[in-house]
Write a protein that binds this DNA or RNA. Structure first.
Lengths: 137, 137
DNA sequence: TATTGTTATACTCTATAACTATA
DNA sequence: TATAGTTATAGAGTATAACAATA
């Protein structure tokens, strides 16, 4: 299986750093941190009933989430209200403004990604995306 | 280009975390940190004339490298001698023990990687590896 | 004066523990 | 008592600045 290649970890993490560097100016242009964007992405898929669940879902610590949620809420990008049925929990969801911002940023990121992928032959690109979908956590 | 997928960054970094978690027990079994292994890997490709150059090559800071090199040298895994032609520089290279340890660990990692890749259809696996080689920094 | 390596220091990120409020 | 969220604190990882040796 192609034993003359670098370790997968080296190649995958190297590409990861490259992708993050690519996203950075896009996010900075909207004054959003990477974790802020990760939260918007997670909430764009499904609303969440507790901050702990969101933290687990994105692989973060619940205490790390708090300043991020404070900021997003303060900017009107997310709803964050006590659950009437259990006032300990906080119902989390995107506001319309949050949905719009997320879609705008994601579209810009997608364009940059496609620039990168355009360098690949069609069959490699297809296999790459299929493998990523199968292997990513 | 498959616009219903998660962001590349999310998938790539997710896979990266998975690979690191996979490597962790292998490295721990040899009492080697991830950065220690990265240094051995870099030196297995070419010897290096300065610590700064090595730091740049692996994407680390030169000051971060020092305790790592101290440890590797102390364990007899690397040579680290002043360059006779310019005694400011430190010539860095693997010792035979360092070469042997690196090969042993890399072989174990390769087996674990291939377990992961075995889940993929042949064409996806081929495209995935080709794309990674083309895109990684 | 410039460069390499080192040490000392500060900063950022993240996790742990203690506290408040709800149940 | 148990759980969600928050705050305060500590720890790891990393970067910056000052220093020593050599050129």
């Amino acid at each position: 299986m192609d034993s003359g290649r670098p370790d997968l970890g080296e190649m995958v993490m190297g590409l990861g750093r490259r992708l993050i560097a690519m996203e950075q100016p896009i996010l900075a242009g909207h004054e959003l941190s990477m974790w802020g964007y990760v939260v918007l992405t997670a909430l764009s898929r499904r609303t969440v009933r507790t901050q702990s669940a969101l933290a687990t879902a994105i692989g973060a610590d619940k205490t790390r989430l708090i300043p991020i949620l404070d900021d997003l809420q303060h900017r009107g990008l997310i709803h964050r209200e006590p659950d009437p049925a259990d006032r300990r929990a906080r119902l989390l969801a995107l506001t319309p403004a949050g949905t719009a911002l997320h879609q705008q940023i994601q579209a810009a990121i997608r364009i940059a990604e496609n620039d990168l992928l355009a360098a690949l032959p069609e069959s490699d690109r297809h296999g790459f995306l299929a493998a990523l979908r199968a292997l990513h956590t």
